[in-house]
């Protein structure tokens, strides 16, 4: 339950300060253009969910719960399980988030997270069939944004991927044998960049997002292949910028994968 954010309001002084720093490759919180804020991943925060992860990126906090239930497959894919992703920008997280059904921002967020997971074939959907055409496992990925301080895309994506890796298929609950982990094939990582003036920086903070002209999210897999992208904002990127962002996203993505998503 949540809805759109109205425009972020930021003072002129702050705006020009961020812009001025950006020209010389600096940021208000002393990060370099390619530095993420500190990341923390806590798996299994919600014991009642089949999988969950609480992720903070700086002070942005996102909780993802994964529920795995039995249901019918889609008629056009009788031999595949189902993934459903939903994001709630709950009104606790920011003064501009309002109660109500998801607005365009929440829907975009859910769809971009979903795309990274789906297109990277993170989960082997063929393995989620119980009875072809009749019964399959449905994997619900519910994103609850608890505190909004910028870059919801990467925080939500990381939380969703970590929660899926932490999730069990509840066979025992349905008297079907022992619980098993989800069939994970790939591990996608999302990396988001903001453009401020001519400067480009990763993992934008709330203030940086408030003044950025454009945003680009790149999801890569463990081989560095691009699996999903989403550009946002009214501004634009040049071809060179896009190429450089993709290359850097794969590098940073691989580092995040190693540090926070390594199985074991």
């Amino acid at each position: 339950m949540s809805s759109k954010t109205t425009e972020n309001v930021i003072s002129e002084i702050k705006r020009s300060w961020i812009e001025k720093l950006a020209i010389s490759g600096k940021r208000v919180d002393n990060r370099g253009p390619e530095d993420f804020r500190p990341i923390k991943v806590v798996k299994g925060f919600v014991e009642k969910a089949e999988g969950s992860a609480l992720v903070s990126m700086g002070r942005t906090t996102v909780l993802v719960g994964v529920k795995v239930e039995i249901g019918a497959p889609f008629p056009d894919t009788p031999d595949k399980g189902v993934i459903i992703t939903n994001a709630e920008l709950i009104p606790l997280a920011a003064p501009t988030f309002e109660p109500g059904p998801p607005g365009e921002e929440g829907i975009e967020l859910a769809r971009v997270v979903d795309r990274g997971i789906r297109e990277s074939e993170m989960i082997d959907l063929g393995e989620l069939v119980i009875e072809e055409g009749e019964k399959v496992w449905i994997v619900y990925i519910d994103i609850d944004v608890l505190n909004y301080e910028g870059n919801l895309f990467d925080a939500s994506s990381l939380a969703a991927v970590a929660a899926l890796m932490n999730a069990k298929i509840p066979y025992s609950k349905h008297d079907m044998g022992e619980d098993r982990p989800l069939p994970i094939k790939h591990v996608p990582v999302s990396v988001t960049w903001a453009k401020i003036g001519s400067a480009i920086m990763v993992d934008p903070s709330y203030d940086e997002e408030s003044i950025m002209s454009a945003r680009l999210t790149v999801v890569t897999d463990e081989e560095g292949n691009v699996r999903a992208m989403q550009k946002g904002g009214e501004g634009s990127f040049t071809l060179d910028e896009v190429k450089k962002i993709i290359k850097k996203s794969a590098e940073l993505g691989s580092r995040i994968r190693k540090q926070y998503l390594e199985v074991g």
């Binding site: 339950m1 529920k67 059904p101 519910d142």
Partner: peptide, 18 residues
Amino acid sequence: ARYNMASFSVEERKRPGP
């Protein structure tokens, strides 16, 4: 005051919204 349950907070997934 608005009381809301996260979809994953209960045994069976709860549909979002009041």
